[in-house]
Design a protein around this nucleic acid. Structure first.
Lengths: 192, 192
DNA sequence: TAGGAAATCTAGCGGTGCTAGGATTTCTAG
DNA sequence: CTAGAAATCCTAGCACCGCTAGATTTCCTA
């Protein structure tokens, strides 16, 4: 008795992905406010109630998109991390990867970290994807920080600083043209 | 020809303040989503259109509340700053003041820095209140940082880190019980 | 091929931000 | 004191929102 998915399950899973893809595209193009259930159902060429046979509500759609984003961010951080050994270049690459991700996918980043549709990090009951992403962050600091007891704190402060830079930059609240100087300062200060 | 306000202007200004006060209370009690024009008009005991004779739209109301919040935050930072001379206690007090403000007024903080209803900082055309608040931040670093050319960068990175800590903490995304350790680490690292 | 289950849609509920147009109050001038 | 102008305020409604009950259609199975 294999558990391979039948045709029904397959098309259902495909449509779920379609919904998420369209939602993400629409959000990235016009912001999450423009992602209404009506416009979404129109673009997937099904009626509104179909959305609710895949997701409990609109927030669940955003959360599912966010989860995909977290997975992508984890990959980006891992790649940046693995490409370096020396502390400064390593941390700098991770910082650039994080900030680059936020800048390249602003709506996705919003869904992950700003809209707060109910994703928990760094907790025992957190979804594996989220724990994995946080773990990639921590791994970057493990390779760079002396005191192993302080790695958790370093990770959280580093993350917070990057998150702050990402959001304030996007909102146009920091001076233009000083981006590199800020990242430089941050990375140098975080290194022991 | 004095320009003292007549009775009409006075009651209008008072009602404007009433709207802002009620909006802030309601937001702090139930979040900004609960601040609808209907509930707002109900609580000020006027009809909805009256709101629009004071503000262009709902976002303008939120922005006005946010501006009050920025002024309050500037005062809080200045007090913390003036109470110390030694670098570490000074910066630590400013950090505590900032994070304490964010924790004590979550909805207000959202309006100021998360909802993004169109406030610009650190720009020539920024409203004076916003420039003043940023100035208070910079003054804290002026008293503490050696290289005067780097103060702007320090200020922005420090602010970003605090902003990140404030938002991630509130969203429950950082480990409980480690708050002091994070602030300690941040302040120590920012000091030269 | 008939009948039941699954999938899908139509229509609608109560809510949102916002506004046009008419009623009411208030001020002003003769 | 009063007529008319001006400022003020409200009723009613528009288009949209998230979401769902119930009818309808499609599909699978016996």
């Amino acid at each position: 008795m294999t558990s391979e998915p039948g045709r029904r399950e397959r098309v259902k899973a495909e449509r779920r992905e379609l919904i998420l893809r369209v939602a993400r595209e629409l959000a990235e193009a016009e912001g999450w406010d423009a992602v209404t259930t009506r416009r979404l159902s129109e673009r997937i060429e099904y009626s509104q109630p179909v959305l609710y046979s895949h997701f409990a509500n609109k927030d669940a759609i955003i959360a599912a998109v966010a989860e995909q984003g977290v997975a992508e961010l984890a990959v980006a951080i891992e790649q940046a991390r693995r490409a370096h050994v020396e502390p400064y270049p390593l941390l700098r690459a991770v910082a650039d990867a994080y900030l680059g991700f936020a800048e390249a996918n602003p709506a996705l980043y919003d869904a992950m970290f700003t809209l707060d549709v109910g994703l928990r990090f760094a907790r025992p009951d957190s979804p594996p994807v989220l724990r994995e992403a946080f773990g990639q962050f921590a791994a970057a600091f493990e390779a760079v920080i002396q005191d192993p007891a302080a790695i958790g704190t370093f990770t959280e402060v580093g993350w917070a600083a990057l998150h702050g830079l990402a959001t304030l930059t996007r909102a146009g609240r920091l001076a233009d043209g000083q981006h590199d100087a800020r990242v430089d300062l941050l990375v140098q200060r975080l290194l022991a």
